[in-house]
């Protein structure tokens, strides 16, 4: 099993296309960092525009606000929406790509059960996803901490501001990246499932993206008839729950409670929904694949 996993990883990391995703992440992170380094103040002005009548925002304040923790949050906000494409690039190719190359039929004549084959393939996609996130964490979090320094983290929500002391931030990022790994694994499992049905990788990649885009639009729309009926069941609604780790509790006087999470049960519920989706997608993929006649 471990040997087979090594083979899969070897195959993934020997392919040039694997590095497209790493390059893309580096490029986006770099571009956001450069933009905020040189024009961060106007970005803060934009975000704080309806507070400037009540509060004093001097340049020092803006610089403090624009620290590595906030930059990473901004990057995650932007990038985690695009990440499904990068994940689908590999997991959508996982089975379909082998079918397309003609290596699937050869691999399946080897003394490996199809379930085991799927498990190894899927695990390899998950490891790739985690590697992408680690890469992103290195660039977006540690890179930004290096460039912008650290300070208290201020998270803007539509109805309030959360301020977290700098020593209370890192564990939240670890939790958030962990959660993001599960969220992206859901996308990975979806494109993996689609990959079973296809004979080239373009189909599953595009289909995954289409599903993610449509679901995300439904998740973000505020239409009352969808709010309670459809939205709670879409996996995309739960993919952003990593942000929940940056929503803190406050005492009666509005003072942040260090180490607190505003609504941990909600995050856990979202996490379980994603895990159910992963199980469902992967389970169906194995079920279909075990019955499938290999004609390619």
């Amino acid at each position: 099993m471990w040997k087979l996993l090594q083979i899969e990883l070897f195959k993934i990391f020997k392919r040039p296309r694997t590095y497209i995703a790493f390059g893309a992440i580096a490029a986006v992170v770099f571009l956001i960092q450069v933009a905020l380094k040189f024009d961060g103040k106007s970005y803060i002005d934009l975000l704080m525009s309806n507070l400037k009548d009540s509060f004093d925002f001097n340049d020092d304040f803006k610089l403090d606000l624009l620290n590595g923790y906030l930059i990473c949050f901004v990057i995650l906000n932007t990038l985690l929406i695009q990440m499904p494409l990068l994940v689908a690039l590999i997991s959508g190719d996982s089975i379909a790509g082998e079918a397309n190359m003609g290596t699937l039929r050869l691999s399946l004549t080897k003394p490996i059960s199809r379930t085991q084959y799927m498990l190894v393939k899927f695990l390899a996609s998950v490891i790739y996803t985690v590697a992408l996130l680690i890469w992103m964490a290195v660039l977006a979090l540690f890179g930004s901490m290096l460039i912008f320094g650290t300070n208290d983290m201020v998270v803007l929500r539509s109805e309030g501001i959360e301020q977290i002391q700098s020593f209370d931030v890192m564990w939240r990022y670890i939790a958030a990246f962990g959660y993001a790994a599960v969220a992206l694994t859901t996308v990975s499992a979806l494109s993996f499932l689609l990959s079973v049905f296809a004979e080239n990788s373009i189909g599953p990649i595009i289909a995954t993206m289409s599903i993610v885009i449509v679901f995300t639009i439904l998740s973000e729309m505020n239409i009352p008839i969808y709010d309670q009926t459809v939205k709670p069941y879409l996996f995309t609604s739960h993919m952003v729950a990593w942000k929940g780790f940056f929503y803190v509790k406050a005492d009666a006087e509005g003072t942040t409670i260090n180490g607190s999470i505003e609504n941990l049960p909600a995050i856990m519920r979202s996490l379980s929904i994603l895990l159910i989706y992963i199980g469902l997608f992967f389970g169906s993929a194995v079920w279909v694949f075990r019955k499938k006649d290999i004609l390619t």
């Binding site: 975000l47 309806n50 507070l51 009548d53 009540s54 906000n77 929406i81 803007l156 929500r157 539509s158 109805e159 309030g160 501001i161 973000e220 505020n222 939205k231 709670p232 609604s237 952003v240 729950a241 990593w242 942000k243 929940g244 929503y247 505003e262 609504n263 909600a266 995050i267 519920r269 979202s270």
Partner: peptide
């Protein structure tokens, strides 16, 4: 005195925890 605070969800992409 403070003024109302509200940011459009399109900017913040809040996590709606359903509560």
């Amino acid at each position: 005195n403070t003024k109302d605070y509200k940011l459009p969800k399109g900017i913040t992409f809040d996590y709606d925890d359903g509560s």
